[in-house]
Design a protein around this nucleic acid. Structure first.
Lengths: 209, 209
DNA sequence: CCAACAATACCGACCGTTCGGTAGCAAACC
DNA sequence: GGTTTGCTACCGAACGGTCGGTATTGTTGG
């Protein structure tokens, strides 16, 4: 393997192939990236890729299935264990942001799938995950409704805002070189709750937050 | 041409090919859609497509360049002629929504490009448009800042919210069968300015809006 | 006469995948 | 202790197919 001078440990070749594939899928897209390009960039032969992943599609699925499952588990844990509703909503946003910081190339690849065509080979795989991701965001918003922080008639509007904050913050981080600091979630939720009307603020009547 | 019983007028074959291509690009993605599939679905011969569009890439660019140019012109017009700052921001959102209502397939294709890989064949074409789209949104937000409606220190946060509202509303319309009524922009801007903190509202001190 | 189409065939390049194989190593057997 | 066997992890070469695109020849309505 051209890029390592030591004998790799068990599974390291597979992980190396996966990392290179994530980067190329993020840069060019799944369909526009050939197996030839992946194996050349990884410094292995084609049969090696097929030995580990069975197919090109199997490789792509391996890249996203496990991490997405982990994210969903994390979101479920936050919604079900955080007792303060506002912190719960902050935690959901932060879990998304941590997912992106953890592996930006994987996140670029995943975002392209989430916003791309549904009939493509990989499109249907992300559909159920998208529903689940939305579900946990809504669960966090409903925690705030139950606590009387957000009016019950404004769940859909609040959902739109929250999902929008997640998407734009991550896209600006992935493609726009904007930072995604660990206080970002807290600041955004505070902004959301308090609104942007400066005329109200001049009355000196801010939110109790 | 298999799909029309009348002889088409001048340019109609080109428009027909373009519509069919937009639908297939929206459904499957640009790279996963072959020229053979496009001409078969359109009921024309391959040389006909090349007669009108020079290349597959030329066809794809034709699908988005003119409409995007029109959208940018429309946004510029709104920001430069609407005198009320809040209506200006509403107008910017509504222009995006009208663009989506006008041709959902083209919008699905465009959104996949905007959120997809930058190094792909079409990725670089949307980069400068994305910058321009963002510019006009920011211009509308700054109109509100100049009018004292939004605090000057919160432009970035407000931008994130506005872009998020645009993206989620259009994605829900394109893929989620949510409505995108003509009052949607007004309602979202009102929601944004007023915030979501119900505890504040119980004090009976809403925004003057 | 020519723009705007068509059918048919074909091109070089590349696609995802499989074939038939080798190298290194550990365990079992004599 | 040496040989044989079996396994894992890789390989070069090639398969059967599709890709985007072009060439040739033809038709037809304005």
């Amino acid at each position: 393997m051209a890029t390592s001078t030591e004998k790799p440990g068990p599974g390291e070749v597979a992980r190396h192939i996966a990392r290179v594939a994530a980067r190329l899928f993020a840069e060019r897209g799944y369909d526009a990236t050939s197996v030839r390009e992946i194996v050349e960039a990884a410094g292995v032969a084609k049969p090696t890729l097929y030995y580990h992943f069975q197919s090109k599609e199997g490789l792509a699925k391996a890249l996203i299935a496990v991490p997405l499952g982990d994210l969903l588990e994390r979101l479920k844990q936050i919604v079900e264990t955080e007792s303060d509703p506002v912190r719960c909503l902050e935690g959901v946003l932060e879990a998304h942001f941590a997912f992106c910081r953890d592996d930006p190339d994987r996140s670029r690849f995943l975002y392209a799938l989430l916003f791309g065509p549904k009939a493509s080979g990989l499109g249907s795989n992300t559909e159920c995950c998208k529903v689940d991701l939305k579900h946990w965001t809504e669960a966090a918003v409903r925690r705030c409704v139950e606590a009387g922080i957000i009016p019950s008639g404004r769940v859909d509007a609040c959902m739109t805002m929250c999902r929008g904050m997640i998407v734009i913050s991550t896209v600006d981080f992935l493609y726009g070189d904007k930072p995604l600091g660990e206080d970002r979630a807290r600041v955004l939720v505070a902004d959301l709750l308090r609104g942007f009307d400066a005329r109200r603020e001049r009355d000196g009547r801010d939110s109790p937050l």
